[in-house]
Amino acid sequence: MTREAVIESSADVVAVRRLVRSAAIEVGLSLIDQTKIITAASELVRNALVYAGRGELRVDVVENGAKRGLRLVVNDEGPGIPDIEQALTDGWTTGTGLGLGLGGSRRLVDEFDLLSKPGQGTTVTVTKWAR
């Protein structure tokens, strides 16, 4: 089942955490993996909110053989990321945060894919598999 959310305010970030939690429980992620994917979702949608002012999230349950997992796609139409390598470096930020959002989220998930075109926006796709 696909779940979708639009992020336009910091209250929506809280709603996203709730949404991802229910999906993570449904897929059967362990408590720690739930916490990791929810935290990653929180980081990613906040990034969209901070840098693009608005973002969208899609949550899908995915399967690979006997494995089940959760896939999140966070999409925004913001300024995009000119240097992805740099953006993934801990401590690097053009905003006011800690610069842990992207690099940190990558460590919290099993698969991480970032697609960005300057001026057109950013799409981050992350997947966490149930152990």
């Binding site: 800690l98 940190g104 919290l108």
Partner: peptide
């Protein structure tokens, strides 16, 4: 565990 993984 999540905070450590996040780098915080």
């Amino acid at each position: 565990i999540t905070l450590v993984e996040l780098g915080l």
